[in-house]
Amino acid sequence: MSEQVPAIEVDGLTRTFKVRRRGSLLRDVVTAVDDMSFTVQRGESVGYIGANGAGKSTTIKMLIGILVPSNGSARTCGLDPLQQRRRLARRIGVVFGQRSQLWWDLPVRESFAILGEIHRLPKAVARQRTEQLSEQLDMGEYWNTPVRQLSLGQRMRAEIGAALLHSPELLILDEPTIGLDVLSKQRLREFLIAERAEHGTTLLLTTHDMGDIERLCQRVLVVDHGRLAYDGSLPGLAATVDTRRILQIDLAEPTADLTGLGTATHLDSKGDGLRQRLAFDPKRVTVPQVLAEVSARAEVRDLSIEEPGIEEVVRKLYARRVP
């Protein structure tokens, strides 16, 4: 394939669903994806974000040929996903965070062996790639364990390894970090960064986790109600919306509202000021700086940081755009 063919080309892509109205024979038409157009070049790393039901999964299903567009077209790796489904399947790797492509009753090792055959990898290539993935994703400890006995974190590493076994040129991850603990998320992200650095794999990622986007994606597509609401860099997105973070602090004793801080803005207080919420701009100040300023005024017992969720970012994006 020539370098000029984009990894993903979507033009006027539209998908409607008929939904039966409750208690009626009438059907409503719901537009899940609405006249969407974008291109992802080879080697790009794109975060595809939006609220639940915004149309993310619907788009992905059309990109891999398991859903027919109502209108418009999608080309993936230069192929027609519907007509050339099997050829396309050899060139892409897909992970649906909520579903498993592994064989439930069989050891992880056996799933990789089967996938190697399915993708018709030469034996030596399959062995070498399997060893490499097993090591990088730290699967050794559960390599002989049946899939149904794995923890979510272990299974997700195995899923991503399985999707990468045939060294696909495009990796599509649908909510890969959902339900994972902080450490597992971190390890997965580091692996994906290293994998992309080595193989130049194009990445399309849907997530609800801003951390995924920050660490993994150079470009962000925001979809809202089936339409593309933003296409650009993450800093660009941050610049268009308020991405302040919220610091919640628990203080040793009731304290007056912490107003007039240089590093953060007071939002609200609870329990006579025992718990207070402050907003700060992560681009300007760090958490220790805020903490230092607060500590000068009151004794801090505990603290937590709220990341702005994707929904929040999208909501703010829309609040700004609607006049």
Binding site: K61, I64, G65, I66, R85, R86, R87, A89, R90, V94, F96, R99, S100, Q101, I118, H119
Partner: peptide, 13 residues
């Protein structure tokens, strides 16, 4: 359940 998506995403009949 929609898991059929996995089967259709494999390069096999």
């Amino acid at each position: 359940t929609g898991d059929i998506a996995i089967d259709f995403a494999r390069p096999l009949d």
